[in-house]
Design a binder for these strands. Structure first.
Lengths: 222, 222
DNA sequence: GTCTATAGCAGGATAGAC
DNA sequence: GTCTATCCTGCTATAGAC
C-alpha cells in the first residue's frame, strides 16, 4: 500500500516485467502458438502459474506485450526522430527520411530489439489479433499522418495525396525491410550487418528515397 | 501401377494434392505450430491419418509445401518476368523493374496466392527451418544474381557492386511490401486493392525505383 | 488408400497450501 | 506472491481393420 521511495530498485515487483521481457522475445521468434507458458515461465525464471496470476491467461500476456513493450518502444523511436529533426535549423525532405531511417535502424533500440520488434509486427500482419488494430490506431496511422504533414510543405501544392502516401509507404518499406530481412540480405550479399555497413545502408536509403520523391516533383510539374 | 492416359482428371491421387493446397494456406496464415493436423485434414476433407500416410509427419508436409508449391510458384513468377522482357526489343532499367513488379504483384498468381506466398516466406525469415536455406539457395540467390546481370549493362562500369546490390534489395523491398502489407496499407490509406489501384502502385514502384537507380548513376559519375 | 481407435504426451488453466 | 499438484483438453503419431 505504502509506496517506498527507495531508489535502489524499481518498486514494482519484477516477475511481471521479466515475463513481459522474455515472452516478447519468444513470441516474436516463434509465434504465439509455438511458445508454451512453461517455456515462458522457464525463461523468466518464475513459477508456471505466474502468467495466470499476473495476466489472467496467455493471450492477455501477448496483448500486454504490445501495450507495455511494443508501443512504448515505438514511441521512443518516434521521439528519436522528432529530436533529430528539432535539432536542425531547416528541415528538408532528406532530413526527414534520414531522421526516420536512423530512428528505426540506428536509433535508441538495440539490434536485437529491432529484429524481434519487427518480427512481432510481421506476425500480426499475417495473422491479426486485436493487437494489430491497437497498434495501427495508436502508432502507425498517426505516424504516417505526421510524416505526410512534414513532407508536404516541400512538395508542389498540386501533388496528389495518393502519390505522397505511396511514396511514404515505399520509403518505410525500405527501412523496415532492412531491419527485418537482415538474415537473408547477409546471406545473399555475404556481408555482415556491422555498424559501418549499417551506416552505408542508411545513406543508401536516404539517397534512393530522396531521388524517388524528387522525381515525383518533376513528374507533377511536367 | 498402370497409368491411364485419361484426360479428365489429373491421374495422381489428389488427396495428397489437396493436403498440400490446404496446408499451405493454413501454415501461411497461422504458422506451423498454430495449425493442427486435424485442422489440415478437416480442411482437405480427408482422414486424420492421411498426413502421416503421405508425408510421414507434419513437419515433412510443411517442407513439401515449399518444395512442391512455393518454389514452383516462384519459378512461374520468374518465368513471367523473363517472358515479359523477351517480348521487348530493347531492355532498359525501367523494363526490368516493371517486369518484376508486374510478375510479383500482377503476374500469373492470384491475389490470394500472393498473400499467403509472402506470409510463408516472412515466417521462415522470422524463424527459419530447413526450408529457408533451400529457398534462398534455389530461388532467391539465383534471382538476385540474374537481376544484377540484367541491370549492370545499363549502369556505369565503375559503380560499386554493393550499391547495385543494395538498390536491387531496395526495389524488391518495395514490391514485397506492397504484396505483403496490403491490409495495413488499405487501413491507413482507406483504399481497396482493386486492379486500378494496383496498376497505379506498379507505376509508382517503377518510377520511384527508376529515379533511385538513375540517381545512383549520377552520384557515381560526379 | 482410407478408416477407427487409441496410445502417449504436452498444453493451458486452476485449486489450495504456504 | 509463489509454490506444487492436478484436471482436462487437444495434440501427433501409430496400429491394425477393412
Amino acid at each position: 500500500m505504502e509506496e517506498t521511495t527507495s531508489v535502489k530498485q524499481p518498486v514494482t515487483d519484477n516477475t511481471r516485467e521479466r515475463l513481459l521481457d522474455r515472452s516478447e522475445i519468444l513470441f516474436a521468434h516463434k509465434g504465439f502458438a509455438a511458445v508454451s507458458v512453461r517455456e515462458i515461465t522457464g525463461s523468466a525464471n518464475c513459477n508456471l502459474s505466474a502468467v495466470n496470476y499476473y495476466f489472467g491467461n496467455k493471450m492477455n500476456l501477448y496483448i500486454s506485450v504490445f501495450k507495455e513493450r511494443w508501443i512504448p518502444r515505438m514511441k521512443q523511436v518516434r521521439q528519436y526522430a522528432d529530436d533529430y529533426l528539432s535539432s536542425r535549423q531547416t528541415i528538408g525532405i532528406s532530413d526527414i527520411i534520414r531522421a526516420f531511417a536512423k530512428a528505426f535502424l540506428d536509433g535508441p533500440i538495440t539490434d536485437e530489439e529491432r529484429i524481434y520488434h519487427f518480427h512481432l509486427m510481421q506476425r500480426e500482419i499475417a495473422h491479426p489479433t486485436e493487437a494489430l488494430k491497437m497498434v495501427v490506431d495508436e502508432i502507425i496511422h498517426p505516424m504516417h499522418k505526421d510524416i505526410r504533414g512534414l513532407i508536404k510543405p516541400s512538395l508542389p501544392e498540386n501533388l496528389s495525396s495518393e502519390k505522397l502516401a505511396l511514396s511514404i509507404f515505399t520509403t518505410i518499406s525500405m527501412i523496415l525491410y532492412f531491419g527485418f530481412a537482415q538474415p537473408v540480405i547477409s546471406l545473399v550479399m555475404d556481408q555482415k550487418f556491422d555498424p559501418a555497413f549499417k551506416s552505408r545502408v542508411i545513406d543508401h536509403i536516404v539517397s534512393f528515397a530522396m531521388n524517388g520523391i524528387n522525381g515525383l516533383k518533376k513528374e507533377e510539374t511536367v
